[in-house]
Amino acid sequence: MDQPTFVYDGDCAFCTTCAEFIGRRIPTGARVVPWQFADLDALGLTAAQCEEAVWWVGTDGVRVAGPDAIARLLGASRPGWRLLGAGLRLPPVRLLAWPTYRWVARNRHRLPGGTAACSLPQATRDRLYGTTGDR
């Protein structure tokens, strides 16, 4: 692979809005692509993994998901964004980043830019995030 790849859910309006923000504001050498149009086999990912989280696949083959993927994407950008990415990798921040990421993923249909199409089916949400009363 000649460039890193950041994979997101192209069926989700919230995720697509975030990807468009990346394209406009975060200069990176990474390819930002919806998983529905990516060669998942070549990336070593499955559709189930991509439904669960965003993914970063580095040129070295390293694959990371969720906030770790976002940190890698930011780390591959300009100095200000790299600093933010480094901050996201700090252990206390990272400890909070995963529960926050899961909450956003579970509620993405309620967030700005989100639509009902962003909502995963209840069975999928339960499988990925467990059953909770805070939906």
Rank of each mutant, 00 (worst) to 15 (best):
40 L>N: 13
61 G>H: 15
56 W>Y: 03
55 W>P: 07
131 T>C: 08
112 P>F: 02
112 P>W: 05
11 D>Q: 07
95 L>H: 09
51 E>W: 04
87 G>V: 01
66 G>K: 00
56 W>I: 11
3 Q>K: 14
96 L>N: 03
103 W>V: 03
61 G>Q: 14
67 P>F: 03
104 V>A: 12
128 L>I: 11
81 W>L: 01
15 C>T: 04
21 F>C: 06
120 L>W: 00
120 L>C: 06
3 Q>I: 12
4 P>T: 07
5 T>A: 09
103 W>N: 01
57 V>Q: 08
75 G>C: 10
104 V>D: 03
109 H>D: 03
52 E>A: 06
67 P>D: 09
17 T>V: 12
92 P>A: 11
100 T>E: 06
85 G>K: 00
127 R>K: 02
106 R>N: 03
92 P>G: 14
98 W>C: 06
55 W>E: 10
87 G>N: 00
6 F>W: 05
38 A>Q: 08
6 F>Y: 08
9 D>L: 04
35 W>F: 08
45 L>S: 06
18 C>M: 12
9 D>M: 05
133 G>D: 13
129 Y>I: 05
33 V>E: 12
12 C>A: 08
15 C>E: 14
25 R>Y: 03
68 D>M: 06
67 P>Q: 04
39 D>G: 01
87 G>D: 00
29 G>I: 02
94 R>K: 15
93 V>W: 03
16 T>P: 01
6 F>R: 00
133 G>R: 15
17 T>R: 02
84 L>K: 02
114 G>D: 09
46 T>G: 05
69 A>V: 10
89 R>S: 02
98 W>T: 13
115 T>H: 15
88 L>S: 00
89 R>M: 04
3 Q>C: 14
48 A>M: 00
92 P>N: 08
63 R>C: 15
7 V>T: 05
121 P>C: 11
64 V>S: 14
128 L>E: 15
46 T>K: 11
106 R>V: 11
28 T>I: 11
47 A>R: 04
134 D>P: 08
21 F>K: 05
48 A>V: 09
108 R>P: 04
81 W>P: 01
48 A>R: 05
